[in-house]
Nucleic acid binder design. Structure first.
Length: 596
RNA sequence: GGUCGCAUAGCUCAGCUGGAUAGAGCAACAGCCUUCUAAGCUGUGGGUCGCAGGUUCGAAUCCUGCUGCGAUCACCA
């Protein structure tokens, strides 16, 4: 790496020039700004303490030293406190030729010695279909997993399905009462949608019942608690916990409808898991751990029998872990599943992709696990992402503003189809090819839109305006890729051999070099994105690369060139760019068309 | 009220561990298809980086306070 060469030589230079020792931090490199000549810039301000000379003088002395002692440094210029180094094109071309044939360029080999990263995402409830919020969650989780893999980690993707509880009982009751034996088949509805509809129906009937009670003189709060429907749901939950065969059968039946529906949604989204946990199988897990903690006096019991963790020394309040009746709460279960998961995979790291509304929960989870003696709890990482907001605020099921995942994906398909047909892109496509293109572009637009913003920031989605297809978008990147494929097809027709390298003596146009410089950055972009758990970094990098490539494409024609070597170089550069686009978009779960 | 997070162009977003005149896209306007795909390229206009202090040779970036927005603080999940 050229950066390493420069840093070590700057250190040497400082020693021989100023008789001083530079710390690593003091040698700061950055990319030279476009408006100045050069490739790499050294910021000399931190070094003037060592040189005891003015910034300009220091820069000039170091520049001279590097010019004389480092082959790759061809020239330099000094502007204020910035030393701009011109790196010989031979270096860049050498790098290019060396890496041209690496099919997985940018991706690091898996380090086998370290324990796997376990990443949880999706975590749906089985009482309603997936919505916009889940889309961000799923895309983020899946993409971060891919990025970690590419950076060299072994990764396990897990899902934890919330398949039991009062919510699913509500759907079950509504179905029993008003379902008329309807099934996904008989109603022609996706199973998750069908069950979700019954959940909504329960809520409607429940509200009517509460209103009636209030009208008959019952206190509003009491009415909400004493509604016969709600009591029925609570009783059903108890029956479920007692393993009542009839209830269990219905529960299984309806959940299976939901899973069939989820599978379709996941499939269209391109999301998958290595393992799926079900809460019905894990919800009792935390109890024994809590009881052990109680024995060891790490936790304490209140007079009514409820069990708590005292976190007042950790800047938090007290946290309930077992109710007075001995039943567990969300936190209790999560303690249990964390330990289970850690043991299942010998996890080196546990990542949870969960919205930032649960920041508090995860903070407390980690503290309690540590208190209970699980040192690995510090390897828990909550990938806390911002909410997806609509122009008028959050999604609210009551106001019918929930954006359904399936609906949104279908809309993206239709928009993609409309745009593509308007542009006349598919006139020579078969019907099958055309459909595939609409899907690829529509999903590409959606995924890129969701992933290009920093995960921790909340983002805005406006259902009124459809997601763009021009500018910083998925389709723009896909389009560039398709353009390159077109070039390569033509090269193939012309029987141009792209195997042999073009040597180090080629003269590059500025636009070519710009593209090459970005290609050079890709491996470090992956590492950075992995470190920050940020698909946005991959997206923004790819956009920069593609934008730069399009400038090259527009300004530097390939096949008009008379020099054979240059034609080959430009095609290789194009192919290399396409390869990176494919790799990077792969990390975001975005497919690419060969024509569009 | 306590805790945590966010605030950059009309809108949506970049800006890596502090470094040069703060960048893109959308929208607006003006150009570029007899030339490898115009879902593209070029140009113009648009900013007190929420406000006020502080640290530093240097602050959108770090610290403090304030304002605004959001989340959270349940014997809910």
């Amino acid at each position: 790496m050229i950066e390493q060469i420069i840093i070590s030589n700057v250190a040497k230079g400082i020693e021989s020039l100023f008789n001083a020792k530079a710390e690593e931090k003091q040698i700061q490199l950055q990319r030279t700004k476009k408006e100045f000549e050069g490739d790499i810039t050294i910021v000399v301000f931190p070094l003037i303490r060592l040189s005891k000379k003015s910034p300009e003088e220091t820069a000039t002395l170091i520049g001279n030293y590097l010019h004389e002692n480092v082959d790759e440094v061809n020239d330099f210029n000094v502007i204020k406190g910035f030393l701009n180094l011109v790196i010989d094109d031979k270096y860049w071309l050498g790098f290019f030729n060396e890496n041209l044939k690496k099919s997985n360029y940018g991706e690091a080999a898996t380090h086998k010695d370290s324990d796997p990263v376990v990443i949880e995402y999706s975590a749906p409830n089985t009482n309603k279909p997936l919505h916009l919020g889940h889309i961000r969650n799923n895309l983020l989780g899946h993409s971060v997993a891919s990025i970690l893999q590419a950076s060299g980690s072994e990764v396990k993707r897990v899902n934890l399905v919330n398949d039991r509880g009062i919510h699913i009982c509500k759907s079950m009751i509504a179905w029993q009462k008003w379902g008329e034996g309807n099934t996904p088949e008989s109603s022609q509805k996706k199973g998750d949608r069908l069950v979700g509809d019954f959940y909504v129906l329960f809520d409607q009937k429940y509200k009517i019942e509460v209103q009636k009670l209030i009208a008959s003189g019952v206190e509003p709060k009491l009415a909400e608690k004493e509604s016969p429907l709600l009591i029925e749901a609570q009783q059903m939950l108890q029956q479920w916990e007692r393993n009542d065969p009839e209830i269990r059968a219905l529960w299984e039946r309806m959940n299976n409808w939901v899973y069939a529906g989820f599978d379709k949604t996941y499939e269209r989204m391109g999301i998958s898991f290595d393992k799926t946990y079900f809460e019905s199988e894990t919800y009792l897990l935390g109890k024994t751990i809590v009881e052990e903690g109680l024995k060891k006096d790490i936790l304490f019991k209140k007079d009514n029998g409820s069990v708590w963790a005292d976190l007042t020394n950790d800047g938090q309040d007290e946290k309930l872990l077992l109710r007075a009746d001995g039943t567990s709460v969300y936190m209790t279960q999560d303690l249990g599943t964390a330990i289970l998961r850690y043991n299942d995979f010998k996890a080196g790291r546990l990542i949870y992709v969960v919205g930032n509304e649960q920041n508090y929960h995860f903070e407390v989870l980690e503290i309690i696990l540590k208190k209970l003696g699980y040192g690995w709890a510090e390897n828990i990482h909550h990938l806390s992402y911002g909410m997806v907001e609509l122009p008028h605020g959050k999604m609210k099921s009551r106001e019918g503003t929930v954006v359904d995942a399936d609906d949104l994906m279908e809309e993206m398909y239709q928009t993609s189809k409309r745009m593509t047909v308007e542009l006349g892109k598919t006139s020579d496509f078969s019907e099958e090819e055309a459909k595939q293109l609409y899907e690829t572009v529509g999903m590409g637009a959606l995924k890129y839109f969701m992933l290009k913003v920093d995960p921790k920031k909340s983002m805005l989605f406006n259902p009124e305006e459809s997601i763009d297809f021009t500018g910083n978008t998925g389709p723009f990147i896909q389009y560039t890729y398709a353009r390159i494929q077109s070039l390569l097809r033509k090269a193939n027709e012309l029987k141009i051999n792209l195997v042999k390298t073009s040597g180090k003596t080629l003269e590059m146009a500025q636009k070519e070099k710009n593209v090459l410089r970005l290609i050079y950055d890709y491996p470090s972009v992956i590492q950075n994105a992995a470190q920050n758990l940020s698909p946005a970094m991959i997206a923004n990098y790819t956009y920069d690369l593609v934008k730069e490539y399009n400038q090259f494409y527009q300004e530097v024609p390939v096949f008009k060139e008379t020099s054979k070597a240059k034609i080959i170089f430009r095609l290789q550069l194009s192919r290399f760019t396409a390869q990176i686009i494919k790799s990077a978009m792969g990390l975001l779960g975005i497919n690419l068309p060969d024509r569009m």
